[in-house]
Design a protein around this nucleic acid. Structure first.
Lengths: 131, 131
DNA sequence: GATTGACCTGGAGTGCAGTCCAGGTACAAG
DNA sequence: CTTGTACCTGGACTGCACTCCAGGTCAATC
């Protein structure tokens, strides 16, 4: 319940990821350097939460870890990298749009198959009734 | 150019997958038994193409191989398994709908971030002009 | 009859993204 | 002081879906 920081447990809970994954992200450079308590325990600040939120959005939409690392590096390098960050995000956004369109196409095909099968079943039922 | 069957190369080309992947699918039981020429070479028929098309739709929408195997087994078992096939497809369709919705949510968040960054850039430009 | 190209087999290897583990520290509660 | 819980580290392991490879066959072509 502290105001200034969050513990690893709180963060993991909040984002629905494991402590291992959280540490893995840090090790892979997806987060800017996380502060430590004198005990060595991680202390996550609001800025970490913010970046992690974006990281999760990008991972949930299947951006690979390597690209996320590049992005996080730009974040670490300061505000002058914002144009490049926008490029990465806009590119991802475009891919995502394509990807969603493709998924919807496939979904249509699957629904067609379901309808076809339902037609077969209905025909079989009719036969049953006619007997 | 024969009318009755397709070669592995033709199939791979048509579906944009590798020969290895094609053989892998067969080995994993995603296809019903594929015929062979006397030479031992595979000969794909229209029914194989049809099933493979569905398999690809389902894989493209991330159905795991294990579930596809279950589905293919039902296909092999005959028409009386159609109700169960419909269950599998309808379930997948529902998951897919959820999945697409989640992707779109994430996409909104990413677009928000892009807009935020563009706002920062615009503000910086204004400052530049004011100087 | 040598070469070429498409195909065959079984099995090993790859890349990605975590996930698990052993052995240890920090600290609050009983 | 012991117990419990949360956390630490480095490194090994896992699951999934391919992908690659060595060594071989077959049919047509030069």
């Amino acid at each position: 319940m502290s105001t200034a920081h969050y513990t690893p447990g709180e963060i993991a809970e909040r984002f629905g990821i494991s402590l291992d994954t959280l540490r893995y992200y840090e090790k892979e450079g997806l987060l800017t350097q996380v502060e430590r308590a004198p005990s060595g325990h991680r202390r996550y600040r609001a800025s970490d939460v913010e970046l992690l939120y974006l990281v999760r959005c990008l991972r949930d939409t299947d951006m690979p870890i390597a690209r996320l690392r590049d992005f996080a590096e730009l974040v670490r390098d300061g505000d002058h990298t914002i144009p490049r960050r926008v490029d990465i995000l806009a590119d991802h956004d475009a891919r995502l749009t394509e990807r969603i369109a493709k998924l919807q196409e496939r979904q249509q095909a699957i629904r067609h198959k379901i309808d076809y099968y339902r037609g077969v079943l209905a025909a079989a039922d009719d036969e049953e009734i006619a007997r």
